[in-house]
Design a protein around this nucleic acid. Structure first.
Lengths: 236, 236
DNA sequence: CGGAGTCTTGACTCCAATCAACAGCGGTGG
DNA sequence: CCACCGCTGTTGATTGGAGTCAAGACTCCG
């Protein structure tokens, strides 16, 4: 077992109370910020927070008092696997919600950490609860739920089976590239290991081999790759 | 690749229009059948259907016109993995919903098959849509969503990592036994294989070995096992 | 410059996949 | 009725891919 404690600094780089009326995500393009009226009604404040890369919003098992709206950046949700290493179960992009399990009353199910610097709106549970069932945002909550389960199922069927080569190829083709781009964020080998359930060494070997074959380049935190050439490998 | 087509007969053993007022699941103990008023209003009928073991409710990719309320039995949701074999992503028990992705407009994401004979209420999408956002059932929908994601995450972190022994042990301790019972439905080796991402042969060997060590007995479709003795193996 | 963390590479081991054969069981039909 | 067939489960022999352990290279940053 590896006991090195991963960076868990709860560093908040920047903070200010939020005016939901100005939220770019509030006007239909993403999460419907129906929380505004509640806040004016005197509820707990909604803060806008910035988290640096590799800082955590909350930890698995922590009491869940906030729901987070992701406005910028990229998060990973991890759970400890039996071997003591964190396993990435999902990524969260702009517009998605983190910590929705707060509504169910239990603790946070995951540790949420920023992969890219993130800006989030931290919504107190009470504020959310009174509006989360609001019919006007229910359809949007539902589509977020659908995205969550689709992502989870993708991890199960595409990223936890087959050879290491195949998993890496499918990760590149389908996950952070959203199935369309020919580039995506270059994860650390450790993160890819935690996502694909293979060791860091194996990930490193596989990525290195892809680079040697000209299927993949890495520069300044970005993977560029050849979707066409990678496709056959994704079947392994 | 194995091309044997699994039993996909859409055999419906029994069928009748349903009176939601009589539904044992309608009165708070499980899914809140808020659909009743709609039905009286002249919507498409809600049928109560019985499916035999190993029959399918719907297939991955089929157009999704119905949402199913599970009243009795046990279902598995599967998706085809890259090797062409179905992978079990989730089980559904009494009170849960199948095919909720119909609301998002896309096709069914999974194939749903009965493991134990099942009785379900088949709710036409239109009927559901008008009440799925009903504030009175939103909290219940939410708790079902939480259960779904918790289950999916369990598959990712507990059943897709570690040795074959560990996976089987964790399956027995945490999945169909609900983490409490000392017995559960005895799945076929093929289903365990599809759930744990190991070959049928390896599952068979592992189960046989557990039996030899007295950790597990199988009789009449039920696994009985020794939680205490299995616990250390679950850490592998 | 030095040091910690990350990434890479090598050598060896081992668990599970693969290929193959066979037993048990139930169903079906001659 | 019993022989046959298909399906499920079991077991064995062999192989291969990834885990493990170890060492060194690289990068970033104080």
């Amino acid at each position: 077992m590896d006991t090195r404690t991963r960076s868990r600094k709860r560093v908040v780089d920047w903070q200010a109370h939020t005016n939901c009326a100005e939220c770019s995500l509030a006007r239909g393009e993403s999460f419907q910020c129906a929380l505004l009226p509640r806040r004016e009604g005197g509820g707990a404040p909604i803060d806008k927070l910035a988290y640096g890369a590799r800082t955590s919003l909350y930890g698995e098992g922590d009491p869940a008092h906030f729901i987070y709206v992701i406005r910028e950046g990229l998060l990973k949700l991890t759970q400890l696997a039996i071997n003591g290493m964190p396993r990435i179960v999902r990524f969260l992009h702009k517009g998605q919600l983190a910590g929705l399990e707060a509504l169910s009353g239990g603790p946070y199910r995951h540790t949420a950490e920023a992969i890219l610097p993130a800006v989030v709106c931290r919504v107190p549970l009470e504020s959310f609860r009174n509006h989360g069932h609001d019919p006007s945002i229910a359809p949007h909550l539902f589509s977020l739920w659908q995205r969550t389960t689709d992502d989870a199922d993708m991890v199960i069927t595409q990223l936890s089976t087959g050879t290491a080569q195949g998993r890496v190829a499918r990760f590149l083709l389908h996950v952070l590239s959203e199935g369309k781009e020919d580039h995506c964020v270059a994860l650390s080998r450790e993160d890819m290991s935690a996502l694909l359930s293979v060791t860091v060494e194996t990930v490193s070997r596989t990525v290195a081999e892809f680079k040697r074959q000209g299927l993949l380049q890495e520069s300044k935190g970005v993977f560029h790759f050849d979707r066409r050439a990678l496709a056959p490998l994704a079947a392994l």
